[in-house]
Design a protein around this nucleic acid. Structure first.
Lengths: 193, 193
DNA sequence: GTCTATAACATGATAGAC
DNA sequence: GTCTATCATGTTATAGAC
């Protein structure tokens, strides 16, 4: 099979995002795909290379779609709305993507972070930077990006916490409601006019 | 020394929060404290027991301080400002605290999350809920809390990423600047009137 | 309370057959 | 491209001396 490499990437994405780098062995990944641990080394030179390739694979899969859609829209506020909605949808549909991101923030050393930033995050970061510059020319675009990303990622993870908190609305907040909440808060704050 | 147990908890907090459960060996923890791996088993029955004890230890340390300060302030906007500043300060001073929180969001099963929510998060959640209700009576308080927490936690983690991104301002954003950014965005959005 | 020694097993990686 | 076999090392945990 020629697609073994991609099946390895998908198995690795599932396992790494759920259990972390140290929590997954090459044998675990091989088992998932149906080959032995040794055979993986024909496709990737070592565990770290497979890990980096996995992250790159996940980012490329999802960020290209979003930036393409964004580039078709002129109005900044409209572009923001699309960005938030698309990010929520994509990261809801593929939790591996957002978990690998958060996990790397937590435990990635500077060397690995640098590799990830260059190979995966940069292409996504630039159009966001431009958008923030249009929306708020007097603010720091990087701070705004970090704020927005923090809201999007945290909402999706924190939903697991909601059932254990008081006064929680019945039924989880759907993606469209979340998108409206975040977009509105980002544009107008807590007290919209 | 009688305080070996506490020194073990601190070393474990440092390592577990940074590298995750699987990423830390009993030897690593013992080395940090200056005893052998075998000696740890005199204080904790096994690795998992040490991990649970570590999480409990961290949460107990940090929850009360902030809510006490908040209860002294009447004006909601002022109380928000204090909350954001205090949260940033505390979680900056003890990164182990926020990392364990994010890590448990990522990989904690529902049972462990329920325990953490009840034993640690509830007492903190209630005054926040009341504050949101005062700030924006027509919005969902839980959504607002998750948005705010997402910004605070993500900013502090994402600073590791900044050096690898283009157009980064020289020098990391300090806590006071971050506090002003988040408070302002939360109250007025990207384009304050 | 801490040590050394050791058991029993898992891990990343390589060599070489097919 | 995948296998089996193997190596060197690291892992949790226990036993028993001091």
């Amino acid at each position: 099979m020629e697609q073994t490499q991609e099946r390895l990437l998908n198995a690795a994405a599932e396992l790494f995002s759920k259990q972390g780098y140290a929590g997954v062995s090459m044998r675990d990944i091989g088992r998932e795909v149906g080959i032995t641990q040794a055979a993986i080394y024909h496709h990737f030179s070592n565990k770290e290379a497979l890990y980096i390739a996995t992250i790159t694979y996940l980012f490329e899969q999802h960020t290209l779609v979003i930036t393409e859609q964004m580039s078709a829209i002129d109005d900044p506020a409209e572009r923001l709305e699309l960005l938030v909605g698309a990010m929520l949808e994509v990261t809801e549909k593929d939790p591996r993507f957002r978990r690998i991101y958060m996990r790397e923030l937590l435990e990635g050393d500077q060397q690995k972070l640098a590799a990830i930033a260059e190979s995966a995050f940069l292409a996504f970061y630039e159009p966001l930077y431009a958008l923030m510059d249009e929306l708020a020319p007097d603010s720091d675009p990087q701070l705004l990006i970090f704020s927005l990303a923090g809201m999007i990622f945290h909402h999706l993870e924190a939903r697991k916490l909601a059932p254990h908190l008081p006064n929680t609305a019945k039924g989880n907040a759907g993606i469209p409601l979340l998108a409206r909440h975040i977009t509105n808060l980002f544009l107008h704050g807590v007290s919209p006019s």
